[in-house]
Amino acid sequence: MLTKRIIPCLDIKNGRTVKGIRFENIRDAGDPVALAAEYARQGADELVFLDITATNEERKTFAQLVRDIARHIDIPFTVGGGIAAISDVEVLLHEGADKVSINSAAIKEPQLVYDLAKRFGSQCITVAIDTKFTAAGWKVFSRAGTVETEHYTLDWAKQITDLGAGEILLTSMSHDGTKDGFALDITGDVSRGVSIPVIASGGAGKMDHFADVFNQANADAALAASIFHFGEVPIPDLKAYLANQQLPIRLCY
């Protein structure tokens, strides 16, 4: 049976992980490859690496890092952050990334989603949506969540699906960092409203939250960062818990 995916997300700046990560058995907690290997060993189903660097020089470092990750890691990984053109995607896939995630560039030029899917195949094009609950309802935000767009979240999700996106990474800015649980309503609406897989993101604080987003919101995968990085929710415990809740989960030991 196809399993629900658990996905740790690592923020990368100038080739190193940031935001602080505590793993007792890793000597250098800033080394993305060592961390990725540790997450793979713990049973992560996929990994996401988000490039939060700003300069072109740092972007080259990121491409080298992607190659290094691909060389050492035997589970799939997605890379995102600042991808704006076909040539960016070409470089990252060439270095060994399995999927790329695009966000603001898709809002600026939706045709890019179509072009990327046609060129590289839908399976490697993830569109990230940052969404926030506003007085007008769930709206899409761009530029790292700083600019409110004209798009309503469910409509935008359907639009990018029609353009050929292979997957949606849906982050609720209203929930991100709260540790109060995922946005069950909008995640459910999007997941039931489109025909492609949806990754829920933002708000994970404890193991129940993952069960809720899979059971109540029909998410295909769930992504989190700090609760994994600081060992608040160890991945092996989480997966054992979810399997106990009768959810389809890959247990690998």
Binding site: R5, P197, D220
Partner: peptide
């Protein structure tokens, strides 16, 4: 009725 692509870990 299932999601396509079939994406993820399966037996």
């Amino acid at each position: 009725h299932l999601k396509v692509p079939h994406m993820g870990w399966n037996n």
